[in-house]
Amino acid sequence: MLEIKDLYAGIDGKEILKGLTLHVGAGEVHAIMGPNGSGKSTLANVLAGRPKYVPTSGSVTYEGKDLLALPAEERAREGVFLAMQYPVEIPGVNNIYFLKAALNAVRKHQGQEELDAMEFLQLAREKMKLVELDEAFMNRSVNEGFSGGEKKRNEIFQMAVLDPKLAILDETDSGLDIDALRIVAEGVNALRSEKHAVLVITHYQRLLKYLVPDFVHVLADGRIVKSGGKELAEELEQKGYEWIEEELVAAR
């Protein structure tokens, strides 16, 4: 589904991803772990098409298409979803209006019929229950005045409604209490199927107890330096990231 080959990318001329290669197949859940500043968010944002994050070489193929050639909205319509590390507040843009517009843009692109207000509300209500978001949130402005946890749940709610083929979660677990963590994991688990792939970016192993990955990768200094099964996450939890860096240094 997603094929990242030798990807280099940076922000403001500063190189951050330095030859990253990763293969994600349909139906798989991959966890990407790594120390702060290793480039996890950069990877997520390059995949989502955030303008500041500029790929300089390498390729990303998504379902056979050159993903990097598409503007952000086209990627979303093709089924790529990024749950952001820091969801932005957008005063004056109504949550439900925004999400309906987004869903219908996606559906239209995929040749599906657009949902009318009633159909959309029904779907939204169902997904709200899943992430235990109060309906009152829907009539507020996007993320405005939401607590940190509410913002993260709103990301998962949007994901549930948009039903992306490739979901990328950028530290959605950070700052969440255990209940919220469980809700987020349930939201993602509900999406799991042979057709969906998930890239879970996390700093801690906590979330992976509820959301068991098929593969775990360690990102350090802009590259995947180690890959393994779910045991790798536990090892990282116990030993921290230093040993990987030491291993890297030793290998040079």
């Binding site: 303008p51 500041k52 969801p87 932005v88 957008i90 004056g92 843009v93």
Partner: peptide, 25 residues
């Protein structure tokens, strides 16, 4: 707000519509 503009686009809303939404907001 470029961040807000990207947020809307990242959900599938076209650049022009996103911009109008923010202006209207």
């Amino acid at each position: 707000d470029e961040e807000a503009l990207f947020y809307l686009r990242a959900r599938g809303i076209g650049a022009e519509e996103a911009r109008n939404l923010l202006v209207y907001a």
